[in-house]
Design a protein around this nucleic acid. Structure first.
Lengths: 144, 144
DNA sequence: TATAAATGCTATAAAAAGGTAGTAGTTTAT
DNA sequence: ATAAACTACTACCTTTTTATAGCATTTATA
């Protein structure tokens, strides 16, 4: 498994919010649109707020907006916030004693493959997602 | 999370067996060497046997040996056997409706990053691991 | 031939992840 | 005043993953 469900949900939510035009998104609306379980979604939104990706506003007509510029949020940051920095850095062969000075036999191969992935996650911001979405729409490409 | 624990254990076991010189490995010996929980390890070994990676022999002095040439076992095969082929192919943004004809906005980016990883897993066989291990030993590089 | 050291099978327990429910409270637009 | 939002906390349920246990079977060997 590459990502756990919670992280995947977070990506779904942020990706959705980044590509759509609403000013503000309520938990209820996101639930309707994305079919993520209601209560779980709410907890996750609170979590994303605490991590500084979103800002919440209380009261009627309240909801969630981005707390930063879209270009300042990338997928690596989100993954890191939700799964911790270990998520992409543990030894491939599962040896806890595998470190740079005393690597396992798969170390270099794995570091290389993994760093490609980390690079992609780091280099892709929500702003990139939004741009791509708008380009696709303009070209009439069916897009989610 | 990249891999679940069971898969990681499998990689540990196969990597260990591939680089060492024993003819046969008992569960008890592997437990001693690798500190994988005894009973769980045994089930996993049986599982790897059922999947055709290992052959078991019963009775006293029994144990496990490889069922194929080392070069015929790569990490992608093992991952696939233990986690299913979905493990590396689901939509990054978590949209079940994301398919080639109707991709999500991250689709291409993710497919590219992922295929690099799949390539690495596919191109690395246990024979490669063994070779690397022996080269490292010869060069006096500390290796696990 | 009895025994010890192996694996095979199946059931069950424990831990982690994912998900639901309730209650009480705060904030704010209308 | 009310309704529609979010916050916080607690408890509980379900599913999946990880781990343990008991008993059966196989086989070398003393």
């Amino acid at each position: 498994m590459i990502l756990n469900k919670t992280t995947e949900y977070a990506f779904t939510i942020l990706g959705f919010m980044a590509t759509r035009e609403e000013e503000m998104y309520s938990a209820e609306y996101l639930h309707d649109q994305l079919k993520i379980p209601r209560r779980y979604l709410r907890r996750l939104l609170t979590d994303l707020t605490k991590h500084g990706f979103l800002k919440s506003s209380l009261g009627r007509n309240g909801g969630f907006v981005f707390a930063k510029e879209l270009k300042e949020i990338n997928f690596q940051m989100v993954l890191n916030a939700l799964e911790g920095s270990d998520a992409l850095t543990t030894c491939f062969l599962g040896f806890s004693c595998c470190v740079v000075d005393h690597p396992c036999v798969m170390h270099d191969t794995w570091v290389e493959a993994r760093s490609k992935m980390i690079e992609t996650l780091t280099n892709t911001s929500l702003a990139d997602l939004r741009e791509k979405y708008q380009r696709d729409i303009a070209k009439n490409i069916p897009t989610i």
